[in-house]
Computed example of a mutant assay.
Amino acid sequence: MDSDLEGETLKNASIGVLVSSLLYFVPGINTIGPVFGGAVAGYLQQEGVTGGLKAGGAKGGLMIIPAIPISIIAGALLADVPVIGGLLAGSAIIVAIVIVGHSLLLGLGGGLIGGGLHSFFSGGDQSSSDSSGEIR
């Protein structure tokens, strides 16, 4: 794959991270927010299901970027809690790992859905296009 494709994958995954991060703050949707982020990344990838999985997985991996500062801030805030503050502060990184794992798995599923939706709405098989991108 060429560097342009990888750049597009990174851009689409970053957009998916933004969508997921915003949806984490919406009550009731926050649990499945990574699915929507992965679906957006997969749809924007415009490579069908395989490209959707790649973009959704990249989105899940990139979720480490917002998870680390959030866990550091949460750890710092929880460290001052009497009696169990140290335990809560130490577990903040474990919570960050769980969030990233959750986002990775659901992002892969969302990428699959988004890539499939793009294939469906663009007329089906992505392999029938030539190098110019036109459907034969």
Rank of each mutant, 00 (worst) to 15 (best):
M1N: 11
D2H: 01
D2S: 13
D4E: 12
L5G: 13
L5I: 12
E8A: 15
T9W: 06
L10M: 12
L10Y: 04
G16H: 09
V17A: 07
L18Y: 06
L18I: 15
V19A: 13
S20W: 02
S20Y: 01
S21Y: 12
S21K: 02
S21H: 05
L23V: 09
L23W: 06
Y24V: 07
V26L: 12
P27F: 09
G28L: 08
I29A: 15
G33T: 05
G33K: 05
G33R: 05
P34R: 08
P34Q: 10
F36L: 14
G37R: 03
V40R: 00
A41Y: 04
L44V: 08
Q46R: 15
V49I: 15
V49A: 14
G51V: 10
G52L: 09
L53M: 13
L53G: 04
L53R: 04
L53Q: 04
A55I: 09
G56T: 06
K59L: 10
K59M: 15
K59Q: 15
K59V: 00
L62H: 06
I64E: 00
P66L: 07
A67W: 02
A67Y: 02
A67H: 01
I68N: 05
I68M: 06
I70W: 01
S71Y: 07
S71M: 13
I72T: 09
I73K: 02
I73E: 01
L77Y: 06
L78K: 11
A79K: 13
A79T: 08
D80G: 12
D80P: 00
V81R: 06
P82W: 05
V83C: 00
G85D: 12
G86S: 10
G86C: 03
G86D: 11
L87Y: 13
A89D: 04
G90F: 09
G90W: 08
S91D: 12
S91P: 00
S91Y: 10
A92I: 05
I94P: 00
V95A: 13
V95D: 05
V98E: 09
I99A: 15
I99R: 07
I99T: 13
V100H: 03
V100L: 04
H102I: 00
H102Q: 03
S103D: 14
S103Q: 04
S103W: 01
L104S: 06
L104Y: 10
L105P: 01
G107V: 02
L108D: 00
L108S: 01
G109D: 01
G111N: 07
G111E: 10
G114E: 07
G115Q: 03
L117W: 04
S119I: 00
F121I: 12
F121R: 11
S122M: 10
G123A: 03
G123V: 06
G123D: 06
Q126Y: 10
S127Y: 11
S127M: 11
S128T: 15
D130T: 02
D130N: 13
S131A: 15
S131Q: 14
S132G: 07
G133T: 11
E134A: 11
I135Y: 13
I135D: 11
R136P: 14
